[in-house]
Design a binder for these strands. Structure first.
Lengths: 344, 344
DNA sequence: GGCGCTTTCCAAAGCGCTTTGGATTTCCCT
DNA sequence: AGGGAAATCCAAAGCGCTTTGGAAAGCGCC
């Protein structure tokens, strides 16, 4: 069923039917009702490609996802983020499309997306420090919003980000207040901007307290469970092991806890742990009492805000870039306690 | 840059340029080379909507995702599955599109997808027992492959599934062989077909061993960490608590372990745990020695097989439906041991 | 009755591509 | 030299929609 045959059935022109369906005023209420009814009855939906061709809009938002390092997609954060974003897309009639890109092909892929006209805008996930994709997208003129920011990039762009620096600074201060002096940071990959900022916060808090950061206590990699476990196990073997650990995600914190258990130590009593908590649906930080003391910020909520912003950007491209800073909340759970030295 | 202006620049007709670019034989090698070069130079990419309109193919594969219960998207399994699928899509030039659907609107959404022509086929995720979507899609005639199967549906359809029944039967037998008699099942939602089959396997093994399944030891819900923790804590409080637990996913198994720790018990010694392991990138079951004894089957691999099958189905819709059964492997880790009674 | 509005509708062009049906040229062979 | 096949290219139609530029009809009013 297409416009033409529907129009014929109704004894109307395609123009009129199209206008009736799209809410234009140049059509009488009676006709509109008649048209709408017929459309419903015949299960008519305008062909999206034809509509897109005619209007120049795709009603699709793209997510370009680095593949070689599959970090983005397989990171459990991804699902919650996308779930949040999809809520906004659905509300505004957009679909979301994922394009997988091998490393180095990013420029190609963005050019292709705009040349092929398959999306109206993109979400930039996982920005790195000094991320070249931002100037690229600005140059191409494809509307985009960044999930996070990119240190070192001066041009204007829209973003939604957690105040990673401040939240890790506060978390570190919290541990310092508990008397901890050897505090480890099991960070994400430090080329990622969020990890970079978290380290800044961590270091700033240490320096402010007059403590020189120890490179041996700072680890950086993809935030898997195995990674959290491995680094913790190693550090606990040191001559003067850390008494507190800052973990970058719930998943790696789970590995951290496993290593602590295996070492015969007790969480909170022997080693304190604070993690960042993205508030993932499948990995809630406990039900009543939080398992971990954590800096919490819902990535699902971030996804929703972000996609709303992108849709606005698409619908009025000339409006100034918006930004939105989310403050993580420090929730105190059962994974932190006074430094062991203090307790004696 | 579009076909018309590119053709004009080359002093050729649109036909020739199009044919040159699409590998048709009616164009000389010399011209083809010239055209390809110009296309590259001007960064030309055919507009996908126009191409789709002309060919009738969208080169897009759809994933329709239930929203109200956001199980699908926020389940960490989702990311790995999609990562696997995207590998095949990228190889064959397809994009993937996600449509969020509120409960009850599924029929609407599928109809819309085919009417709007926005996808060439869909992947059906999270099939339930007796899932009405399968007959619906067959009726509509939209190519699809199911990730899993649906007990109670007799019509023919393509699927890729893990042999859930057998793998849980084996896992149960393994525990029985270790002397366990009170074995709990912390299952997924039992309207989900995979959970249904797992329970069948579990029950079959028990009955074969002459043990009457105890309803108090069978739990069912979304497989979150908190759920694994809560059910385990409850069951450990019973007068005769289980000595072994079968968990439905790594995430809930992590909750199970947490509850065991909190109860002052030791994994493997006091309580044995076997989990199903989807081999998620961020939640590997340990590095060298597996953390948990587990039935393992890579969901990423399933995604890749599935999407390959769907592409074949799209390209030759009349071929008979293919099916692919994956056998989970039982890996023995450190979470299982002889039943406590046996050790005395 | 005729004028100027508003209301209601329509024919046709155009979005950027593929593909059909031919036209033109080249080449080989007798 | 001429005929036919093969190679190479092209004009134009068509995919299903929106939108422009009018046309026709209805209405109140002088």
């Amino acid at each position: 069923m297409n416009l033409k045959t529907l129009a014929k059935k109704l004894q109307l022109s395609q123009t009129t039917v199209s206008r009736a369906l799209n809410g234009y005023p140049e059509v009488s209420e009676a006709t509109r009702r008649r048209v709408e009814e017929a459309a419903r009855a015949h299960n008519y939906r305008p062909n999206s490609r034809a509509k897109g061709l005619a209007t120049g809009r795709a009603m699709v938002i793209g997510h370009v996802i680095p593949a070689s390092t599959q970090h983005e997609m397989v990171n459990p954060v991804f699902g919650d983020f996308v779930a949040g974003a999809s809520r906004a897309y659905a509300a505004f009639g957009y679909d979301m499309m994922f394009t997988r890109v091998d490393d180095g092909d990013e420029e190609q892929v963005y050019h292709a997306l705009v040349a092929k006209g398959s999306v109206d805008g993109v979400i930039l996930q996982g920005p790195r420090v000094n991320d070249g994709r931002i100037p690229l997208l600005n140059r191409i003129g494809l509307p985009f919003i960044v999930h996070g920011r990119s240190s070192g990039i001066d041009e204007s762009y829209g973003w939604v980000d957690v105040n990673n620096k401040r939240s890790f600074q506060r978390a570190t201060e919290f541990l310092l207040d508990l008397g901890h002096r050897r505090i480890a940071l099991i960070n994400g990959l430090e080329q990622m901007d969020f990890a970079h900022r978290r380290r800044e916060g961590y270091i700033k808090a240490l320096k402010t307290a007059g403590i020189e950061p120890d490179p041996a206590l700072m680890r950086s990699a993809e935030m898997t469970e195995v990674y959290g476990h491995r680094e913790t196990r190693e550090m606990l073997k040191m001559k003067t092991p850390p008494t507190a650990i800052l973990a970058a995600s719930m998943i790696s914190a789970i590995g951290v806890r496993r290593a602590i258990d295996e070492a015969g130590l007790t969480l909170a009593r022997d080693v304190s742990v604070i993690t960042h908590d993205d508030d993932l649906s499948y990995l809630r930080n406990g039900s009543d009492v939080p398992i971990f003391t954590a800096t919490r910020s819902s990535v699902q909520q971030a996804g929703e805000i972000l996609s709303r912003m992108l849709i606005e950007k698409i619908e009025q491209p000339d409006a100034p870039n918006q930004t939105h800073m989310l403050e993580a909340e420090l929730v105190v759970g059962r994974s932190t306690g006074p430094a062991p030295e203090m307790r004696r």
